[in-house]
Amino acid sequence: MALGDINSAAQVHRLAFVRQKLSAEWLTTTLNAYPRFLCYVAEVERRIVGYILWAQKSGFRDQVVLELDQIAVLPARHGEGIGRALIDRSLPLVKAALAQQGLTLKHIIVNTRADNHAQKLYSDALGAEVVATISDLYSADEVFMVARNSRL
């Protein structure tokens, strides 16, 4: 993701996360937090149809605990494999960026609503497993998932 992608990515954010506000500001501040945040877009026919945000957690460490901070795909494009492609294609880029800093990936964490079907995506793509549920955290119960290094 680059600054020139913000408006298009913000449109994806607005449609994917209808309860959230200030989409362009959210993505701009995230993009500006490089290298703590690593941000990528998915394009189809040169149009942004999704994005993924990865975040290093708990400081810059030799072994990184990485968070899949946010992934979004235009609702009209759900079911086309774009979310899976975002994970599969960006994760090697993230690992390479970490290696340039002399860092390696230890684990990936992700959280989502307990009723979100994306849990299957995180399980299938990353090997993530639910390790905790927090009731009524954002808009509903939230599950926290961890993908241990052995599957990454």
Results as ranks from 00 to 15, higher is better:
residue 15 L to E: 11
residue 15 L to R: 09
residue 77 R to G: 08
residue 33 A to Y: 09
residue 152 L to V: 00
residue 18 V to D: 10
residue 125 A to W: 01
residue 49 V to K: 09
residue 102 G to E: 07
residue 141 D to F: 09
residue 80 E to G: 04
residue 131 V to Q: 12
residue 90 S to N: 02
residue 124 D to P: 01
residue 36 R to A: 12
residue 7 N to H: 12
residue 118 A to G: 01
residue 110 V to M: 08
residue 66 L to P: 04
residue 115 D to P: 03
residue 54 W to T: 05
residue 8 S to G: 12
residue 19 R to C: 12
residue 145 M to F: 00
residue 110 V to S: 03
residue 18 V to I: 14
residue 57 K to P: 05
residue 7 N to G: 13
residue 113 R to V: 14
residue 126 L to V: 01
residue 86 L to K: 00
residue 70 Q to L: 13
residue 141 D to R: 04
residue 114 A to S: 14
residue 123 S to T: 11
residue 66 L to R: 02
residue 137 L to Q: 14
residue 60 F to K: 13
residue 150 S to H: 13
residue 114 A to R: 10
residue 123 S to I: 03
residue 131 V to A: 05
residue 54 W to S: 05
residue 109 I to Q: 14
residue 41 V to N: 08
residue 146 V to T: 06
residue 74 L to F: 05
residue 42 A to G: 05
residue 96 A to E: 15
residue 102 G to I: 05
residue 91 L to R: 00
residue 27 L to D: 03
residue 126 L to N: 02
residue 69 D to E: 15
residue 48 I to D: 02
residue 65 V to R: 14
residue 24 A to D: 09
residue 74 L to Y: 00
residue 29 T to D: 14
residue 59 G to C: 02
residue 99 A to E: 15
residue 71 I to T: 02
residue 120 K to Y: 08
residue 81 G to D: 04
residue 11 Q to W: 10
residue 16 A to F: 04
residue 149 N to W: 10
residue 63 Q to G: 14
residue 70 Q to F: 07
residue 99 A to V: 13
residue 64 V to R: 04
residue 41 V to I: 10
residue 14 R to D: 15
residue 72 A to G: 01
residue 121 L to T: 01
residue 32 N to P: 09
residue 128 A to I: 01
residue 50 G to R: 06
residue 106 K to F: 12
residue 49 V to H: 07
residue 31 L to E: 07
residue 117 H to C: 12
residue 15 L to A: 08
